[in-house]
Simulated scan of single mutants.
Amino acid sequence: MGIIFEVKNRIATITINRPEVMNAMDPETYKELSDAWIEVRDNPDIWAAIVTGAGEKAFTAGADLKKTITQRPEKSDLFLTQKEQLLNRGLEVWKPIISAVNGYCLGGGVTLLLATDIRIATPSATFGLSEVKRGILPGNGGTQRTLRQLPYPIAMDILLTGRNFSAEEALKYGLINEIVPQEELMNRALEYAERIIENAPLAVSAIKELAVKSQYLSIQDGLRMEQILQSHLLGTEDAIEGPKAFAEKRKPQFTGK
C-alpha cells in the first residue's frame, strides 16, 4: 500500500508509505495519491487534511525515477488533463491542507509542498528540486509555483542549480511556516488542522479559493469574485450561526450548510 488514508474528527491524514525508498512514488502510488485527494475534495465529512511521509527519514523524495522515467505514455495522454489528477498538477481542492515534512522533501516532494497551505518541518528536513541534474524539469508546478512563492533570485537559484537546502533556509525563504522537533511534528500539524476546522468550512473553502485564484487575477476581477462568494456565504446557515453564537457568548456549531 503506497498511501495510507485515514479520517478522524473531520481531518484526513494522507501518509506516503514507501519508507524503504524514501517514500518515492511509483505510478501505483501516484494513482493512490490521486484517489486520496479526490476523496478529500468530495467528502463533505472531511474539512481539512494533513499529508506526511512514513518513518522519520523522508516526506517524499518525489518520483521513483526507476519506475516512472522509463515509462512512455501514449501521445493522447497529453490531452487527458483530468486523468489521475494530483493536487500539485492542478486538482482543485479548496479545503486546507497541511504538510508535515519529516526528512527529505525532494523533487515531487517540493512540488507537492508548494501546493499545500501550511507547512511544518523537522530540523533535519532537506529540500531540493534536483530535476535539472537528471536532464528533466520539475513538473507538476515546480517551475510555476516556485516563482510565485519565492523571491525571483532564490527561486532561480533553486531551480537552475538543483541544490539541496536546509529547513532553516526554507524557513528564511518563507517556504515553510515553522520548524518543530520530530516528536512534535504530527501533533503540531493536528493543532493547525483542529484550529482551522473550528471555523465555518464553507468560509474556509471560499477564502482558500480566493487566495489561490487571486494570484492569477486582476485586482478588479479578484474583488468581484470576493463579492460573489461573500454573497453566497451570507445565504448559508453557518453565516447565521456565527453571529448568533458570538452574541450568546458560546462556541459556534458550524455544519457546512
Score class of each variant (00 low, 15 high):
residue 52 T to F: 04
residue 89 R to S: 15
residue 136 I to N: 04
residue 82 Q to C: 13
residue 125 A to E: 06
residue 42 D to I: 07
residue 97 I to S: 12
residue 127 F to Y: 11
residue 150 L to D: 01
residue 140 N to L: 15
residue 79 F to C: 06
residue 221 D to G: 02
residue 210 L to E: 11
residue 172 K to E: 07
residue 148 R to S: 14
residue 220 Q to N: 09
residue 162 G to Q: 07
residue 135 G to D: 03
residue 213 K to Y: 13
residue 170 A to C: 12
residue 66 K to A: 15
residue 86 L to M: 15
residue 140 N to S: 15
residue 248 E to P: 02
residue 58 A to W: 07
residue 35 D to R: 02
residue 9 N to Q: 14
residue 46 I to A: 04
residue 34 S to E: 07
residue 16 I to M: 06
residue 240 I to Q: 13
residue 92 E to G: 06
residue 211 A to S: 15
residue 140 N to Y: 14
residue 55 G to H: 06
residue 109 G to M: 02
residue 117 D to A: 07
residue 106 L to D: 06
residue 218 S to I: 03
residue 100 A to E: 10
residue 154 I to K: 11
residue 4 I to Y: 03
residue 224 R to H: 14
residue 65 L to H: 06
residue 42 D to Q: 04
residue 213 K to E: 08
residue 164 N to G: 10
residue 222 G to W: 01
residue 228 I to T: 08
residue 185 L to Y: 08
residue 123 P to D: 11
residue 171 L to H: 12
residue 168 E to W: 02
residue 173 Y to Q: 14
residue 37 W to S: 12
residue 242 G to E: 13
residue 165 F to W: 09
residue 97 I to A: 11
residue 168 E to R: 01
residue 21 V to F: 09
residue 23 N to R: 05
residue 20 E to R: 13
residue 138 P to R: 06
residue 29 T to R: 07
residue 46 I to S: 05
residue 109 G to C: 11
residue 216 Y to F: 07
residue 46 I to T: 03
residue 252 P to R: 05
residue 169 E to I: 15
residue 77 D to I: 06
residue 132 V to N: 00
residue 183 E to Q: 14
residue 181 P to G: 09
residue 3 I to E: 15
residue 163 R to V: 03
residue 148 R to P: 12
residue 56 E to A: 09
residue 193 A to E: 02
residue 110 V to R: 05
residue 34 S to Q: 12
residue 44 P to C: 01
residue 112 L to Y: 00
residue 212 V to I: 08
residue 81 T to S: 10
residue 201 P to V: 01
residue 83 K to F: 14
residue 28 E to F: 00
residue 171 L to S: 08
residue 86 L to D: 14
residue 203 A to Y: 07
residue 164 N to R: 14
residue 141 G to T: 07
residue 218 S to W: 06
residue 224 R to T: 13
residue 146 T to C: 02
residue 101 V to T: 09
residue 52 T to R: 03
residue 146 T to H: 00
residue 134 R to G: 12
residue 106 L to R: 04
residue 255 T to F: 13
residue 157 D to M: 03
residue 98 I to T: 07
residue 64 D to A: 08
residue 206 A to C: 02
residue 254 F to D: 08
residue 232 H to M: 12
residue 190 L to Y: 15
residue 186 M to S: 09
residue 91 L to I: 00
residue 246 F to H: 14
residue 243 P to Q: 05
residue 247 A to C: 12
residue 146 T to K: 01
residue 187 N to Y: 09
residue 96 P to N: 11
residue 57 K to Y: 09
residue 219 I to V: 03
residue 233 L to E: 00
residue 24 A to V: 10
residue 120 I to F: 10
residue 118 I to F: 08
residue 16 I to S: 03
residue 204 V to A: 04
residue 73 P to S: 02
residue 257 K to C: 13
residue 40 V to N: 07
residue 64 D to M: 06
residue 160 L to Q: 05
residue 148 R to A: 15
residue 47 W to E: 08
residue 61 A to F: 11
residue 39 E to F: 04
residue 109 G to K: 05
residue 254 F to V: 10
residue 92 E to A: 14
residue 210 L to K: 07
residue 4 I to C: 02
residue 101 V to N: 05
